[in-house]
Design a protein around this nucleic acid. Structure first.
Lengths: 194, 194
DNA sequence: GCCTGTGAAGGCATTCACAGCA
DNA sequence: TGCTGTGAATGCCTTCACAGGC
């Protein structure tokens, strides 16, 4: 988030204080300083942080100095939207495969990639060295897809299916659940008089 | 999340224990009990919780006994995907408006709704009693859209734009940031070797 | 015997507050 | 004077552990 805030700064701006960054990120300035202190002591007392240096250091810490290859499984509306999504961090994340179990979709192309059948998934992950898998299937298929991904060597999964999936140790999952987000909003609306 | 887990249970299952629910949700059983205890004492010692009753109570707490009207601003790939998204909680959330500032998109229809220009946004929110707004614009437009939404009376915002937006008190924002999610995955991959 | 409800303990993240340095 | 870096204080969330009830 700090990286994003730094990138939104005008190019000329050489330095930034924890107060400024806190305002941009919507957090407390002490938190900014403590967070950034984990990277090392890159700030200058009385002055602030050097924007370019900080961007570089955060990028290094996040592992953004290299590209990561990504496969997407489940090419419905959401999968297609993600495949087209230009916002994937300056192309640090390269999409190298689209998979769907619907034979009718096989061979259709989305953003210069061709949709492949599920039986090619494991081979493709190995061949193309994919380490991230995105699941955009319906909920019932999510666990099976996660198993396939993990088995084939994917070590990080972004799960958009509305289901909790279980994976082996060493594989990391993050869940993005649109309908849960809406339900949380519903809760707040309901709470604050409604 | 518990609600989702309960809904995934076979219809016949009358009761459920905190241990079972914990396994489904991927959390500690003490946490389940503590969380559910905020709803009231609906469990029976030695037995567990009644599935149907629990679903009802959670739904009530979340404000899901009524429908909420939603507008989506920014009808690119992601906005379109969300408009089509059948998974919006059993239609508890009704999409009542699609808006985009691109004149070429005006009048196009998506899932039985027609894309409208931005100058109709405020009127539509008032007329159709929308209380939730979804922002799927590019980052630079997000703040302006958020201001418009808040001004027009929307009280909850789901922000998919990769930007931190500032809104008046009384308006609630949740952020879903796909590229941040990927960067977090990148961090873990980077961390755990290679 | 089994499972809930909950005080108490523990752990983690945030914030405070200020010493230290430019 | 201005702003960082960080111990100490705070507060929150999670987990433990067990009394209480079926």
């Amino acid at each position: 988030m700090y990286l994003r805030c730094l990138e939104s700064l005008p190019p000329g701006q050489g330095g930034v204080s924890s107060d400024q960054l806190a305002a941009l990120a919507g957090v407390n300035s002490a938190k900014v300083r403590k967070d950034l202190s984990y990277l090392g002591s890159y700030g200058v007392r009385g002055v602030g942080y050097d924007v370019e240096h900080l961007k570089l250091q955060i990028g290094l810490e996040l592992g953004l100095e290299r590209d990561w290859s990504v496969v997407i499984v489940g090419i419905g509306n959401l999968g297609r939207a993600l495949a087209n999504y230009a916002g994937f961090g300056d192309r640090r994340f390269r999409i190298v495969g689209l998979f769907d179990n619907d034979p009718d979709k096989e061979g259709l192309s989305v953003d210069s990639l061709v949709i492949e059948p599920m039986d090619r998934l494991a081979g493709a992950i190995a061949d193309r060295r994919a380490s991230i898998g995105i699941i955009t299937t319906p909920a019932p298929a999510a666990q099976e897809v996660a198993d396939l991904l993990a088995m084939a060597g994917v070590r990080s999964i972004l799960n958009f299916a509305p289901a909790v999936i279980r994976i082996p140790d060493g594989v990391d999952v993050r869940r993005v659940d649109l309908s849960t987000e809406l339900q949380v909003l519903s809760f707040y609306l309901h709470r604050t008089a409604g």
